[in-house]
């Protein structure tokens, strides 16, 4: 464990807490893409298949449980909660995310570390996570205005993978045989996808104005 990775995990945790705060405090999920939340739930469920078979550390197990539970809780809340689900932007959240699932799965079958069930699902979860934010970014683009908590949620979600890239660079120089090209390339793509969001987020922060994404 190094500081970059710990910072990344904490940033990821903060993004989840901000999302939960937004939904429970405002009793609204406007501006949140249900499809992105479903993709993230799938990412965690397929990445942490080894949750009960390989014990790495208490921290690792607890964080995995938190990520799985929180992503499922948000999906259930957005689908079932009678007040929250009324504020869901159903007609804006129309990204065909099934293509992202299919593309990630096909890529995982072609590019993986080992052609085994667990490795293929691990690679699938890595590729899917890189693309999972797309429905959310498209939804924000369409809805134009980004409320503070949603903007902070997406910002921290993007920042966490940037910390992981620093973690991979650090581990590359401090550990032998550190082969994780799948995660590195995918993590880079994931962070680049946030580039324009980060730009507009920084502009709104600099002008202390409400964040506006060009329609």
């Amino acid at each position: 464990m190094n500081i970059f990775r710990f910072a990344g995990d904490m940033t990821h945790l903060i993004s989840i807490l901000v999302l939960l705060l937004k939904i429970y405090a405002t009793k609204s999920c406007s501006g949140i893409s249900l499809k992105t939340q479903e993709l993230y739930a799938l990412v965690f469920l397929t990445r942490y298949l080894d949750l009960f078979t390989d014990f790495i550390s208490v921290y690792n197990t607890i964080m995995k449980l938190v990520f799985i539970a929180s992503s499922l809780a948000v999906v259930c809340c957005m689908r079932m909660h009678r007040v929250v689900r009324r504020s869901y932007d159903k007609d804006l959240d129309t990204f065909r995310h099934y293509f992202l699932i299919l593309a990630s799965f096909v890529l995982a079958l072609l590019v993986n570390e080992k052609f085994t069930f667990q490795e293929i699902f691990w690679a699938f979860s890595i590729y899917l996570e890189a693309l999972a934010i797309l429905p959310q970014l498209v939804l924000l683009q369409r809805s134009g205005n980004v409320d503070n908590l949603t903007g902070q949620y997406v910002f921290f979600l993007g920042a966490y993978r940037a910390f992981y890239i620093l973690n991979w660079i650090y581990r590359y120089f401090t550990e032998q045989h550190f082969s994780r090209w799948i995660a590195c390339v995918s993590g880079l793509v994931q962070t680049v996808l946030y580039a324009d969001f980060f730009y507009y987020y920084f502009i709104s922060w600099k002008n202390n104005a409400k964040m506006q994404l060009p329609a």
Binding site: R5, D9, H12, D50, D54, I56, S57, N60, M63, K64, F67, E113, W122, Y164, N167, R171, E175, F178, S179, R180, I182, A183
Partner: peptide, 10 residues
């Protein structure tokens, strides 16, 4: 087999 190092990450 030892868990390949990437798997100790979240």
């Amino acid at each position: 087999p030892p868990i390949s190092s990437i798997k100790d990450e979240l």
